[in-house]
Design a protein around this nucleic acid. Structure first.
Lengths: 338, 338
DNA sequence: TTGAAAGCGCTAACAG
DNA sequence: CTGTTAGCGCTTTCAA
């Protein structure tokens, strides 16, 4: 493992000169020396060690993306957006997965803080406040991605969950549904709260008061969707439509429906928040609120880049909109005499 | 940002003592001093900076996982396995996505090398040999995951692709199929080659010589599966069965089939290599070769851990087996007079 | 344009 | 058990 010193010795210059010659642009060094340095680099097969550089500079050109579920295509699309944008500006992206677990999130953020990431994008469970403050204390820029962070005024990119959910429920109501259930998620997650808000507002504005029975909380995983659907179906008056607040949850809902022989949409209508990768392949194809996931990631990376360049820039909050894509899983409710 | 020196000053000890007190176990320090140090840490809200530590130790407790497609549930399951195992042993995991692109793979490996990861697990496109050698040159242990790395004798965890593919094709032959197509992928990827080998061996051993027409190369993405299926269907003598060598490809195949009104399995049988997350939900449910993805990741992390502890340990190659799960997408070929 | 020198914030001998 | 000291391998003043 040759070091810069070895290169310097071979090229007959000082390490300072090597450092300058190897810097982007390579200015402040004569063409001649620069060439000698480059030759030495090649001959020794020297490759820089970023650790001391980051130590000295107190930051690195690596962005961290902390997401809550790497198995969720929504987040992987986000990751792509982040990565492409970061890459274009000379930053690399590393990912950390938290599995919707506050402890794992804390651990991931601690790593980013301890390793002095150049910046972090976070889809937060909103329960790991200490590590977030630490990150900020260490001077690492943070962007809230997809989910707001309670009580923290930082750059943010989100989707207008409330409006999209409102639209989705209105679509169901327009079809004639009156008993509409929602399979939600943990209340700590801002997106889930907003989706529930949209659901409730749509019901209220149409004077449909359903009580709490039909608004349920899952875990944003398949298992939660499955469990809740089974519960909903065994209600004395089961819903005629289900609004599923997350794509993985939707898979669980579908499995439960299929298992119980409930036909979609003739027996029950279904709308998913966020699409499935195989959404179009399902029979019937899934009616879903489609989110601009890639854009979400790309914009977050842009905000982070901006913040790195100018730590004093005013805080920016970007809200993108999601739109309802009506496919085959929604239809009128079953007739009373069927 | 308080440093260790600040802690030392406040606690009235040297930085060496602080370092010792904060080390795992915290041995070699009297209980009394240890407590004073911990108090100072709390009071200053000190949090260690790993950069100098890694610099000094010449390695970090972070493993890198470099995968070729973060949107592929197979790889995300692998990531889970890696992460859980690494985490259990006090290592953190960061992910890098290469999108099956040799340049991105090179870039990811360079980052891992430059940042001195503690070890790297790689599902290689097998075209970024230079950065791989550099990683090794820098002294970072490497484990080949899912895919072999040509000409490199390192710890490896793979699946027995050849045997599993052979079984899949035999299943089709047993059902009576004679024109069986394969939608493969780039020849540089070892798994794809092995799957093609299994396909060919099964055909040969049943004296079915089909020429090259039915063995096609995609890109391991949806688009490739779609394109090739369209081509296959417009052949003078289209296949009665398709073996799709990758789960994303399978989605493309399914889309093309649906679009052309080809019914599965009555018109055409389909086997996917690797399951879809919604595999059971499809109509008909997909017959697939199911891989032990989580195990693959977990075993890779184990190998890496072992190698970190003992760089001189003999190279180990683990081969896990995948098994055919027969569901509804395979059946006898259509009768001649239908 | 170049070099000397002083760190960045930790860890690890080596003494005491 | 604790402190002193010497780095880890770069970057960046400051002078020349």
């Amino acid at each position: 493992m040759p070091t810069m010193k070895d290169v310097a010795t071979l090229a007959g210059v000082s390490t300072a000169t090597v450092s300058r010659a190897l810097a982007v642009g390579g200015s402040g060094v004569s063409l001649d020396t620069r060439e000698r340095v480059l030759d030495a680099v090649k001959e020794l097969d020297y490759h820089p060690n970023h650790l001391p550089r980051n130590l000295r500079r107190r930051s690195s050109r690596i962005f961290g993306l902390v997401i809550s579920d790497i198995g969720n295509p929504f987040f992987t699309a986000i990751a792509r957006g982040c990565e492409d944008t970061a890459h274009m500006h000379g930053y690399r992206l590393v990912l950390a997965n938290t599995d919707e677990d506050a402890e794992r999130e804390a651990s991931a953020l601690e790593v980013m803080a301890a390793e002095r990431a150049g910046g972090v994008m976070l889809a937060s469970t909103d329960q790991a406040t200490d590590p977030i403050r630490r990150l900020l204390a260490v001077g690492i820029p943070l962007v809230a991605l997809d989910r707001r962070i309670h009580g923290l005024h930082v750059d943010t990119v989100t989707v207008d969950n409330e409006a999209a959910s409102y639209d989705a429920i209105c679509h169901l109501i327009a079809l004639g549904h009156a008993r509409i259930a929602m399979v939600g998620g943990p209340d700590t997650v801002s997106t889930v709260r907003e989706r529930a808000d949209g659901y409730l507002r749509a019901l209220r504005s149409h004077r449909l008061d359903l009580g709490d029975e039909l608004l349920r909380r899952g875990d944003l995983r398949e298992s939660g969707g499955y469990r809740i659907t089974v519960e909903l179906l065994s209600l004395p008056a089961p819903p005629t439509a289900i609004f599923s607040a997350n794509n993985l949850t939707t898979v669980g809902v579908l499995k439960a429906l299929r298992e119980r022989g409930v036909r979609v949409p003739s027996d029950l209508s279904l709308i998913g928040f966020d699409d499935l990768s195989t959404g179009e392949l399902l029979d019937p194809p899934l009616t879903a609120v489609v989110q601009p996931a890639y854009q979400l990631g790309a914009r977050a990376a842009e905000l982070l880049l901006r913040r790195v360049e100018n730590p004093e820039a005013p805080v920016q909050e970007i809200v993108l909109s999601a739109k309802l894509t009506v496919r085959g899983s929604t239809g009128p409710p079953p007739g009373p005499e069927e």
